[in-house]
């Protein structure tokens, strides 16, 4: 029960969509998690807490931060596509890597098909290539400072 209780709190924080769905249909909790009656009321009260908007936003800001730091040109080039792209990425990968470089590298791999799409925003492919090259250079310097051999990158 404790396991499911913590998982439920984490998932309504990571997914505003799920949080809103639970508000509208509290029975969703019973469908997804094994909770005691008290735990069910606690999770429901959290989903309806007025600070959940802020909590969900902070979580998304924390996930966005390493991408902005490591892939600034790519994030800028996505322009109005940024929000739907991030929503899709976070649906595909609900939990971030602890290490920001790995999270950024994973986002790069995930984004690659879009960069090759003729309908992609202008300049996205070039921004993505430049950011990825710079990212790998920084990882190389960091690994050298940590006495770890440089990897052979998957393309």
């Amino acid at each position: 029960m404790l396991n499911d209780f913590q998982q439920a709190l984490a998932e309504i924080t990571a997914s505003p969509r799920l949080c809103v769905a639970v508000r509208r249909n509290p029975d969703l909790l019973a469908e997804r998690y094994q909770l005691s009656e008290r735990e069910r009321r606690q999770v429901l009260a959290t989903a309806n807490h007025p600070s959940m908007e802020c909590t969900c936003s902070l979580y998304r800001a924390n996930r966005l931060a390493p991408l902005v730091r490591n892939l600034p040109r790519t994030i800028a080039a996505l322009t109005e596509r940024l929000e739907p792209v991030l929503n899709d990425y976070w649906e595909a990968h609900p939990w971030p890597h602890r290490y920001g470089y790995l999270e950024s590298e994973r986002f790069c791999r995930w984004l690659e098909p879009l960069t090759a799409d003729p309908a992609a925003p202008a300049g996205l492919r070039e921004s993505w290539q430049g950011d990825r090259r710079d990212l790998r250079e920084r990882v190389g310097l960091f690994l050298a400072d940590s006495a770890i051999p440089l990897p052979t990158w998957e393309t």
Binding site: L9, E11, P94, W95
Partner: peptide, 18 residues
């Protein structure tokens, strides 16, 4: 979260404790 899909992922969150 106890069931993060990737090993050693962290939620980027600070959830309350029961």
């Amino acid at each position: 979260p106890p069931r993060g899909p990737e090993a050693h992922s962290e939620g980027g969150m600070a959830l309350p404790v029961n």
